[in-house]
Simulated scan of single mutants.
Amino acid sequence: MAVSVSRDLTVQVLEDVNLVKLTDRQQALRAAIQKGEPKSLGVSQVMLGLMVMSYSIPLHFTELTEVVWFGVPWWSGVTFITAGVFAIVLDKHGTMRLRLSRGVKSSLLLFTLAQMVVSTVLGFLLYRQRRGFGQYTSLNQAAPSTPTSSTAPGQD
C-alpha cells in the first residue's frame, strides 16, 4: 500500500499498483473461464461421440444384434457430435450474459445427461436379456446342425 504525506502533514493513501494488477488479472481469468465453458463441453461431447462410434466397429464382426441392427452406436454418436458442434459454435457467437445462451447450454447439458441415462438403461436391459439366453447355448451346441430323419423300428 502506498502512502503519501504532503507538506501540511496530510496523509493520502494511494492505490496499490499490485492490487490493481491482481484485480485485473482475476477479472481476465474469470472472463476466460466463463468463455471457455461451452467450448470444453462441446469438445468433450464431440470426443464422446467419436469414441462411441469407434468402439462400435467391432460389433460388426460379431453376431448381428438389435443394437447393430438399429444402428444405435451410429445415431447416438452423431447426436453427441451434433450437440458438441452446436456448443462450440455457440461459444464463438454467444456470450454468458445472454439468457438464451444459458438456456441453450443448460438444455444441452440436460439432453446429454438424459441420453446417458437412456443408453445406460438400454445397455443394462440388453445385457440382462442376452445373459438370460446363456442357458440355451449348451443345447444349441449339442444339437446337430442339420435335421435328421428317423425311421420306425422294424421298417428297415
Rank of each mutant, 00 (worst) to 15 (best):
Q27D: 13
S44H: 02
Q155N: 08
M1W: 05
L109R: 03
W74N: 06
R25F: 15
Q141Y: 06
L19Q: 11
V85I: 11
K35P: 01
T151H: 10
A31G: 04
G49S: 09
H93M: 09
T151N: 08
V52I: 13
V89F: 14
T65I: 02
Q34N: 14
V121A: 13
T146W: 10
V17Q: 05
H93I: 11
E66I: 12
R102W: 03
Y127V: 04
W74E: 10
V43A: 04
G132R: 13
L59P: 01
R99S: 10
K21C: 03
G103S: 05
S150A: 15
W75T: 07
V118G: 05
V43G: 03
L122E: 02
S145H: 05
V13P: 01
F70A: 06
G94W: 00
M116S: 14
R130D: 10
Q12G: 03
I33V: 14
Q115V: 07
E63Q: 14
L50S: 01
L29E: 09
R7I: 00
P58F: 00
G94S: 05
Y136Q: 13
F133S: 12
Q12A: 09
S40Y: 11
L126R: 01
A143L: 13
K105M: 14
F61V: 10
S150I: 14
A143F: 08
L122T: 01
T151A: 15
S76L: 15
P144N: 12
M1L: 11
V89D: 07
L110I: 13
L41D: 00
G94R: 00
T137V: 12
A114S: 11
A2V: 11
S138E: 12
L19N: 06
G42I: 02
A31E: 10
L109S: 04
V5H: 04
S119L: 11
G154H: 03
T151Q: 08
T95E: 07
G123Y: 02
I88R: 00
D16H: 03
D91R: 01
Q45R: 15
S101H: 05
K21N: 10
S44Y: 03
T151I: 07
P153N: 09
K35H: 09
W74G: 05
L64V: 15
L22A: 15
L126F: 04
K105N: 12
S54D: 05
I57V: 14
V118M: 12
P38E: 04
T62Q: 14
F70T: 10
W75M: 06
V46M: 08
M51E: 10
Q129N: 14
I81K: 03
R128A: 11
Y127I: 04
T148D: 04
K35T: 02
G36K: 07
W75K: 05
L113K: 15
T137H: 10
M116L: 14
G123S: 07
T146D: 12
S44C: 08
Q26P: 02
H60C: 08
L126M: 12
A28M: 05
D8L: 02
V43Q: 00
V20Y: 04
A2R: 14
L108A: 08
F86N: 07
A83T: 09
G103I: 00
I57E: 01
S145Q: 13
L41C: 04
F111I: 12
F86K: 07
